[in-house]
Amino acid sequence: MQKVAEHIVSEINTSRIVDYLLGVFDQLPTKNSIQKAIKSGGIRINDQACTTAKIPAPGDRIGYYSTKSRIKPYSLEIEIVYEDEHLLIANKPPGLPTSGNYFRTLEAALAHSHPLKFSETNLYSPRPAHRLDNLTSGLVIAAKTSKALFQTGQLFQKGKVHKTYNALVMGKTPNEGQWKSVINGKPAITAFKKLKEVRSLKNDQLTLLELSPKTGRTHQLRIHCSEAGFPIYGDPIYAKQTIKNKGLFLSAIRLVFTHPVTLVELDVSINLPSKFINRMKNEQNRWERRNGNSKSNSTAP
């Protein structure tokens, strides 16, 4: 087994480990995935196997170990935005799971396009060090070595990877601010900034936001936008209005972090996906045609 990430319990806790670990390891986003990891020996406390009844204590070192070895390759072209001998950064398409018990995943696609010569230090293929929701597109870091996988996981655990997302939301938002709430029993904070707004027949207005999560809770951005009254366009769970065959308008467009091996500062970004641009243009044009207004009421980025 290879250690992927480690977490140290800092406060007194009364929850069993399955509940405690919700939101701790990006690779284990649900109770079911945590339970499976515990039962397979992938969760160890102070280097010892544990059960689902264990209650972590202050000072405990909880390690997540990957028990997976070779991934069955899946032929799918993936854009690689950055790559070196230790890791790569891929642009995950929407609708593609990062990893998991599926045949068609980003991890399987990387196993096809980037097979590695397995060794004591190298993995069989690049392994995602964190995850994006299935419906969310954008940047994902995948490690090529055990060292890079563990150290990148540590960066995420310590909040040292700064992520920026673009989201197209329903409604007219404030210019900027911060949303705070409790998700899965833990504090969640998201900073937001308005980039552009357009008129819309069904929603009156759509707003393009820049989102910067300060914490990493499951569905945090989707929940915060919905709680604030501005659900993300195309969200099948948190938006009352669904848009068929358009997908979720949420994309991870920038990662800033110190390379875990070379210690070089990396700032990697992608452009706003074209579907965002096309949707905003179409919504504005339809509104203008209906209202007989040829002047754009949108604000420039």
Score class of each variant (00 low, 15 high):
residue 148 A to F: 06
residue 148 A to K: 04
residue 149 L to R: 07
residue 150 F to Y: 15
residue 151 Q to G: 08
residue 152 T to A: 08
residue 153 G to P: 07
residue 153 G to K: 07
residue 154 Q to S: 12
residue 154 Q to P: 05
residue 154 Q to C: 06
residue 154 Q to D: 14
residue 155 L to P: 02
residue 156 F to E: 00
residue 157 Q to G: 11
residue 157 Q to Y: 12
residue 158 K to L: 14
residue 159 G to P: 06
residue 159 G to Q: 05
residue 159 G to K: 03
residue 160 K to N: 15
residue 161 V to N: 03
residue 161 V to E: 03
residue 162 H to E: 13
residue 163 K to H: 12
residue 164 T to M: 12
residue 165 Y to E: 03
residue 165 Y to A: 09
residue 167 A to T: 08
residue 169 V to K: 02
residue 170 M to E: 11
residue 171 G to T: 08
residue 173 T to A: 06
residue 175 N to Q: 15
residue 176 E to Y: 09
residue 176 E to G: 04
residue 178 Q to N: 11
residue 179 W to G: 02
residue 179 W to H: 09
residue 179 W to V: 05
residue 182 V to K: 12
residue 182 V to I: 15
residue 182 V to N: 11
residue 183 I to W: 08
residue 183 I to M: 02
residue 185 G to Q: 12
residue 186 K to S: 10
residue 187 P to V: 05
residue 188 A to K: 05
residue 189 I to E: 09
residue 189 I to A: 07
residue 192 F to H: 03
residue 194 K to I: 10
residue 194 K to W: 00
residue 197 E to I: 07
residue 198 V to R: 01
residue 198 V to Y: 00
residue 199 R to Q: 13
residue 200 S to F: 06
residue 201 L to A: 11
residue 201 L to N: 13
residue 202 K to R: 14
residue 202 K to A: 13
residue 205 Q to T: 14
residue 206 L to I: 11
residue 207 T to I: 07
residue 208 L to T: 01
residue 208 L to V: 02
residue 209 L to M: 11
residue 209 L to I: 09
residue 212 S to G: 08
residue 213 P to E: 03
residue 216 G to I: 05
residue 217 R to I: 02
residue 217 R to P: 02
residue 218 T to S: 11
residue 219 H to P: 10
residue 220 Q to L: 02
residue 220 Q to K: 06
residue 221 L to R: 00
residue 222 R to Q: 05
residue 222 R to W: 00
residue 223 I to V: 13
residue 223 I to R: 10
residue 223 I to D: 07
residue 223 I to W: 01
residue 223 I to Y: 01
residue 225 C to H: 03
residue 225 C to W: 01
residue 226 S to D: 03
residue 227 E to H: 12
residue 229 G to S: 09
residue 230 F to R: 01
residue 230 F to S: 08
residue 232 I to T: 03
residue 232 I to D: 04
residue 233 Y to M: 04
residue 233 Y to L: 11
residue 234 G to W: 09
residue 234 G to T: 10
residue 235 D to P: 11
residue 235 D to K: 05
residue 236 P to S: 08
residue 239 A to Y: 04
residue 240 K to D: 15
residue 242 T to E: 09
residue 243 I to C: 06
residue 246 K to D: 00
residue 247 G to M: 01
residue 247 G to V: 02
residue 247 G to T: 05
residue 248 L to M: 01
residue 248 L to Y: 04
residue 249 F to H: 08
residue 250 L to M: 00
residue 251 S to I: 04
residue 253 I to T: 14
residue 253 I to V: 14
residue 255 L to V: 05
